[in-house]
Design a protein around this nucleic acid. Structure first.
Lengths: 198, 198
DNA sequence: GACATTTGAGTACACTCGTACATATACTTT
DNA sequence: AAAGTATATGTACGAGTGTACTCAAATGTC
């Protein structure tokens, strides 16, 4: 088969087993949850995935590529869920209810999602290629919210979701779910008059 | 001087030069900003601080202690600033103005504060001793806000600050400062009626 | 069945790392 | 001045790292 271009170096020969690649990403995600990006190594991931060490550099072009693939899949999956979740709302009221459920679930505590988000944000603050993952994620969140809210409100809601999730997760004492409802109510209430003077 | 207790092991003999300890923490903070916690090592910090490698284990009981000291000082410093900042407000209106300034400054971009916050949050999600730093930080933020707002509004404002700061910093396109004003206005507007049913 | 080529595995190398520990220096007290 | 002690440094060790590169196995082709 000489028709297959085997241009030297970066673009390696066709990799055959996508299941295996996926399994490595699964393992990588698990290792990150357990040990953080800091504690993630090819060897740990290989062991977790049950594949030989050599497979790491075979399926991925190094550590950066592995992490990028992992977080990319993670963010996409969250976005998919959120889009589906918001699409089930029929009016503004039920949309608020969906947002409420989302915050409650995300801040519930022992969820891997929170850990992975923070690890990703940390990478994103320093590295542009990871920042493009978060940017796209935020973009999709807003679009999902704009199904039911005006663009400004959607942005503010999105930020509110973020802040409440983080603070509820890192807080020492448990908070009433009702505070989430209050937050949503205040943000989504159209205030035609800007009461904040300058 | 036999009166000085030199109980074995963890509590080492009195360390003499607090300036040097402080200088190491300065260096550590700088290294974290540049390379992340992941890329922080005793050797890098020592080089940055201009001290010999041995000083690392002399002034700190290992890496964890160094990181903890660094983030502890960081969070305390931020809290001090924020307290002072909020204390200059005289009424609710000027308090809102202070919050606005705070968000604008924190999300301005090339600030180390953002990077360090994320690194700290990431550690806090996994390690309780770092979580106590963030918990205390949040606690002090709220108290500062409660000088001018009721407790619930203070909590929501605090979360809003967090969310807006993160999203504005990670966003690809610049946002109007006016959106911050709108957010603050909506959160701080007393809504006696909860418009969200259920 | 023999050959060619893709696909995968094992291993070795050249690092960097945290930390313990044996010295060295500076200071205090006699 | 001598002795003793607190303070600080240089260094060496064992462990763990990413990745390149050499083989082996499997697959497809004639």
């Amino acid at each position: 088969m000489s028709s297959r271009q085997s241009s030297a170096g970066s673009r390696l020969g066709r990799r055959n087993d996508p299941e295996r690649r996926e399994k490595i990403i699964d393992a990588c995600q698990k290792v990150i949850v357990e040990s953080g990006v800091t504690g993630t190594s090819h060897r740990k991931v290989a062991t977790q995935a049950g594949v030989p060490l050599g497979a790491m550099t075979y399926y991925f072009d190094g550590m950066q590529d592995l992490l990028h693939s992992t977080f990319s899949r993670f963010a996409t999956s969250i976005s998919d869920d959120f889009e589906r979740h918001m699409a089930t709302a029929t009016d503004k009221e039920s949309a608020c209810e969906r947002v409420f459920e989302r915050i409650l679930q995300a801040s519930s505590g022992d969820d891997d999602e929170l850990i992975l988000s923070h690890e990703l944000y940390t990478l994103a603050t320093r590295d542009a290629s990871f920042r493009s993952i978060t940017t796209q994620w935020m973009q999709r969140s807003r679009v999902a919210l704009e199904l039911h809210f005006d663009p400004l409100t959607a942005r503010l809601l999105d930020a509110m979701i973020e802040g409440l999730t983080i603070h509820r997760a890192l807080d020492s004492e448990a908070r009433e779910p009702s505070e989430i409802k209050t937050a949503i109510a205040r943000i989504t209430k159209d205030s035609r008059e800007g009461s904040l003077s300058t």
